[in-house]
Design a protein around this nucleic acid. Structure first.
Lengths: 306, 306
DNA sequence: CATTCTTACGTACTGCGTAAGAATG
DNA sequence: CATTCTTACGCAGTACGTAAGAATG
């Protein structure tokens, strides 16, 4: 069983360069530290320190473990700190959105919020849907806007908009044709988002259902990166249609008519049902009013000179 | 002391709706679960379950704790799984970049990589600099491109480029003037990135040194969101200059001449020094060749209709 | 009165510290 | 031969299981 004590041991040994120093730091003895490290080594059946030298030197696996330990310990300390502080400032509104929202209607929403609630401190953070959902559960944000799939009974939610998707590619990448079947795409490199993203998840599930299995894929966790790589002709991707209209009109992207068509994705604003709820509800309402995934935005990326 | 056992207890009690079920799941007794939960409640001096009901119901704080527990346990399991798998596929290249890189020269880099290494599976992930650094340490990515501040002795690194920053705002937001002092900005709302971002960190340190203390700030973790809000006139921000040239030319943004000037930020490609290094080095070299933060890209955002 | 959680108590065991041992430079 | 980590061993405290108690619906 992995424990924090073990992680603390390897971390501080690595940090301070010795078992003795780590022992002092953790208010225990060298012996205990040695044991905890050995437990960890036994657990994963791999040495973490090079014992041939007199002084403790990390192995490659040890380096990795230290990095993992640092992360887990930071997570723990952060969680403790967050949980310990009794209340968040009342005039701070932390909203979480995905990239697509950030690119389209976030500014308008913030703008309306500032007008309706002057003096309010707004903190918009952008992340993938799964991260946002977890942040909301852990009370790290007050309200999120995510695809339907990430909505949960525990949240109060309200639909804010719909996103229409389409297959896109660099014009000329594929032979010109009126329309095509999904199968025709499977030899192409498919650019898609990771499983932590709403669009990525929806696409994966849809691909599963339709039995679509592309040969090659490039996976990224970032919409803009996908768009950029698509524009550069690195592959075919499924992208929000309407907001990319200008890029289609200027000939940077081409919409591919493919059957069956990609599904729409519905977006919801969600927050916890608590005391602040009534107030937060008005924020969610404003989200619904300002939401517009179809507003066009222009070429966000250079065309690669490859 | 917070332990995984305690977290597992509250998590599974919440998940399965009872102490007895959780006990079964964790191969122990109700009594032990009860104790672990009580330890946690004592640790934070707050009830996690409502004991007035016959069946276990979470309190508000309990909900929060469950979310925190879920996250920490997921982190742990992920770490274990990652550490347990002996080796990553040799033909998979996982690169980590910041948003700015994703928006400017990532597609070109990927394009060159595909040309030089056909058949290579490329996985670009986009995140903040601190995240990327941690991911590299934990062997979750093979190579990252981040600002100088996040480079570490443990990494092999190579400079790839330089980013020139400037103060920007929506034209007309501030009274027209040839040039201004930093002090003149302190009454404006400052849009800036969070402390986990390279630019955000550099700015904070710089602000500290120059004694700049803005009245109001809007903090986000996303460059695109900052740009969007700036274009919408929500405040003044420090942004990469050259790549936003088209937005300046089309009158969406205005560069403010302010003394003292904002510092440049140097970007480096970094990777661990290991067996694969020689190969990875060539990837880093290509990064240096394709890097160009000054390539213009056009308006990535709608103008807010607020 | 059945179900669900808490409390009490005796036990087993894990993890700790002391101190001696091994290895290195 | 001093320093650094490991091993051995006995001890102590912790966490556990059993079983009885309290509270709820």
């Amino acid at each position: 069983m992995l424990t924090f004590k073990q992680l603390e041991a390897v971390f501080w040994v690595a940090q301070l360069g010795g078992f003795a120093q780590a022992a002092q730091k953790l208010h225990t003895t060298q012996s205990a530290i040695s044991k905890r490290v050995q437990e960890l080594e036994a657990l994963f059946d791999t040495p973490l320190f090079d014992r041939t030298l007199r002084t403790a030197r990390l192995t490659a696996k040890g380096e990795e473990m230290v990095a993992i330990a640092r992360r887990l310990l930071e997570q723990r300390d952060g969680a403790v700190q967050q949980f310990s502080k009794p209340q968040v400032t009342e005039r701070l509104l932390r909203i979480g959105v995905t990239e697509l929202t950030a690119m389209t209607w976030l500014p308008r929403w913030v703008s309306l919020l500032k007008k309706d609630h002057p003096g309010l401190l707004i903190q918009p953070s952008v992340s993938d849907s799964q991260d946002l959902r977890e942040s909301l559960l852990a009370d790290e944000v007050d309200l999120i806007v995510v695809p339907e799939a990430y909505i949960d009974n525990r949240f109060t939610h309200r639909k804010v908009g719909n996103v229409e998707n389409a297959w896109m590619a660099k014009p000329g990448l594929l032979p010109q044709r009126k329309s095509r079947r999904l199968h025709d795409l499977s030899t192409q490199t498919i650019l898609t988002q990771g499983p932590r993203s709403g669009t990525g998840l929806a696409f994966r599930q849809w691909a599963q259902r339709t039995g679509f299995q592309p040969d090659k894929t490039i996976v990224s966790n970032n919409l803009l990166a996908i768009i950029g790589m698509t524009v550069s002709g690195l592959g075919v991707s499924h992208l929000p249609r309407n907001c990319l209209q200008p890029m289609i009109e200027t000939g940077l992207l081409e919409v591919l008519k493919v059957t069956p068509a990609l599904p729409d994705v519905a977006y919801y604003a969600a927050h916890k049902q608590e005391q602040r709820s009534t107030w937060i509800s008005s924020v969610a309402l404003l989200a619904g009013e300002s939401c517009d995934f179809n507003r066009s935005f222009q070429l966000p990326l250079q065309v690669s000179g490859a």
